[in-house]
């Protein structure tokens, strides 16, 4: 296929522009996942381990937010970061930081919801033993997160997949500025609009390949980790 050939030419050609775009995509999406994990994991754990009035509603809303439309998130963050918006003085619009913020907002519910599910399931298993061992609340969270780390890794990958593949938020808050905020997905959108469909699809194949590589790395991490436990 012509598109696969284009993808290969892009890789073999070692085009520095392409490399920069690829790198920006990775940096933005991985940073967004890191930020979202920092907030979402503890939030998910907290939600898993507490009971209060309206908890069911919070869980439903959180699960629902996993389907947040990227364009809506992009627009919200745009209005927030625009010079006329409440955070306009930071001057973050049309920068990679803005894209990281927007993607973090986008994937936060995914990571928090999956973390909640993982930790709640594990907690159901561990509950009696922990009570019998007199495990305090802080130790409890730490132990559940540590023991659930491989399942939580899957939550991170789900977040990364969504962040790396989306175009809606980064287009709006990043502006698709050549050499500065152009990512793989906005470049694909641009080439499509220029009618260069083989190049667009070639870039698309490359993006999918990169997402696969990240997943393979996580898989390696997981299997090495699990092998270590039985060694």
């Amino acid at each position: 296929m012509a598109e696969t050939a284009t993808a290969w030419q892009l890789i073999i050609g070692g085009d520095p522009t392409l490399f920069a775009i690829l790198r920006l995509s990775l940096v933005v999406s991985l940073s967004a996942v890191a930020v979202a994990a920092l907030v979402g994991m503890p939030f998910g754990a907290l939600l898993a381990l507490t009971s209060f009035r309206g908890r069911g509603a919070v869980v439903v809303v959180l699960n629902g937010l996993m389907g947040l439309p990227p364009v809506v998130v992009g627009l919200g963050v745009y209005l927030l970061l625009s010079r006329s918006g409440p955070l306009g003085d930071l001057g973050l619009l049309y920068t990679p930081s803005a894209m990281i913020i927007a993607q973090a907002v986008l994937v936060l519910p995914i990571i928090a919801a999956l973390a909640r599910q993982t930790i709640e399931d594990l907690w159901r298993d561990y509950r009696d033993e922990f009570v019998a061992m007199g495990v305090g609340p802080a130790e409890r969270v730490a132990a559940l997160v540590w023991d659930g780390r491989y399942s939580l890794l899957t939550a991170l990958l789900a977040g990364f997949g969504r962040a790396a593949a989306e175009v809606g938020t980064v287009m709006i808050v990043g502006g698709n500025i050549d050499g500065f905020t152009r990512t793989m997905t906005t470049a694909i959108a641009l080439e499509t609009s220029k009618g260069d469909l083989p190049l667009a699809l070639g870039l698309g194949i490359l993006l999918v390949a990169v997402i696969l590589v990240v997943n393979a790395a996580a898989w390696t991490l997981r299997s090495v980790g699990e092998a270590g436990r039985t060694a």
Partner: peptide, 18 residues
């Protein structure tokens, strides 16, 4: 840094100070 939009949107972007 060029943000490429339609003319209407580009003017709106500028109106907002972006």
């Amino acid at each position: 840094k060029v943000v490429a939009q339609g003319t209407g949107q580009a003017l709106e972007t500028a109106r907002r100070g972006d």
